[in-house]
Design a protein around this nucleic acid. Sequence first.
DNA 1: CTAGGGTTAG
Length: 480
Amino acid sequence: MARRSPNFFLRKHRKWPLISSHKTKWRQAFTQNQPMVSFKQLVAQHNPLQPDFVPSLLQSLSLYNLYQSPQAYHFLIKTLLHNRQFHHIPSLLHHLQLQHFQTPEYIFTHLVKFYGNANRIQDAVDIFYRIPQFRCFPSAYSLNALLALLCRSQRGLKLLPQVLLNSLHMNIRLEESTFRLLVCTLCRMNKVAYAIEILQRMLDDGLGVNDKVFSFVLSSVCAEGDLDGEDVIGFWRGLRKLGFSPAMGDYDGVVRFLVKKGRGLDAWDVLNQMKSDGIKPGIISYTMVLNGVTAEGDYILADELFDELLMLGLVPNVYTYKAYIDALCKQNKVEEGIKMVACMEELGCKPNVLIYNTLLRAISKAGEISRARELVKEMKYKGIEMNWVSYTIIIDGLVSNGEILEACALVEEVLHKCIFIKSLTFDEVICGLCQRGLVCKALELLGKMVERSISPGARVWEALLLSSESRPKFHLVNPL
DNA sequence: CTAGGGTTAG
């Protein structure tokens, strides 16, 4: 949806009017910098370990007549911070406090951030409260710096309410950036309801909450793995009531979350909202919902959705076909699924191994071994490599249909190709061989298995012992 | 007008 005005981007990229020539600015900076440069050189000669360190720094300030220069103080503070001379800071600040110029706020934001990184939370809070004593009006800049560090630790979070309350007394106007910080912290702490409350406050205070903030909050909520589906649906409804106009990515984010949580029908609901909001869902939206409703067993709906996406002129991709074929197979419509493969090829979409595995699974379940063989041939013909899932499905199918030698041949193929399959599949084949009295073959396979450090399960030993009892010439030693 | 976004099973 084109919610942005056409000049949105123009504004962003428009060049600033060249009112002040930066030549003048540069010259000013240069003339100011002359004493600063000498001052900095002098400071570098001071030893921070001397007891008169700070007095001598102050002396150099007066030497270069830099008492009135915030930059000089900022430099001194930075020097102390970088040398981790925290104990010298209070006396320097005391001196700064006695000056008459307005102290720029960035000195305090810097201090707050540095204290935060040194894990001196209380120092950071203290200096923040003292800002007005330096003839400086704190704004959202220093507040955000402090809040950001408070939000980082459990200890900091405890101080947060008090800081917020005091910042109101300090006449700091809370801005969108501040709220965003708080809302995101709350989301991280799974306090979704509080996050909505804050968003509500923002709107009540006449702050425009832009959709980007909503969107950001929503995506952090959806990224929260252990949140309940119910919570997210509630949150989503809450946001919409607050006037959020989601973009396609927002709908898709919620859909993805709901599908992951096994709530395909709720995801379908969101898809419908999307349509009624005038946003055309993309192929990915449909594919996710298709997977979701299939997982919930609503195959009729799955059929409808597939028709619908075609009617909308969306082009299904291999993921979409996979989802649809899955739905067909779950309804035991394997032949229709196979027809779909021809269909997709006609439309220029190549089937992959996942598509064939879906079909093979359904066919094996139905016990149609010869049909499975045909599909394997088809795969080979089309150059689609079988992976471990394909082999597992086929081997299982062969074993349960009594085609034990063919299964054994496939296991050998797997070993030859160095494809990893689960040891359970080996076990099954070895047991099958034993049951048929093919103990030699079973032992041979067991040997290959052990050779590759794949450990057989207990049932393998049982089956081998059982058959060796009837043929005592085998002397079995458990190599483990 | 459309692409975009970015997914898959034992």
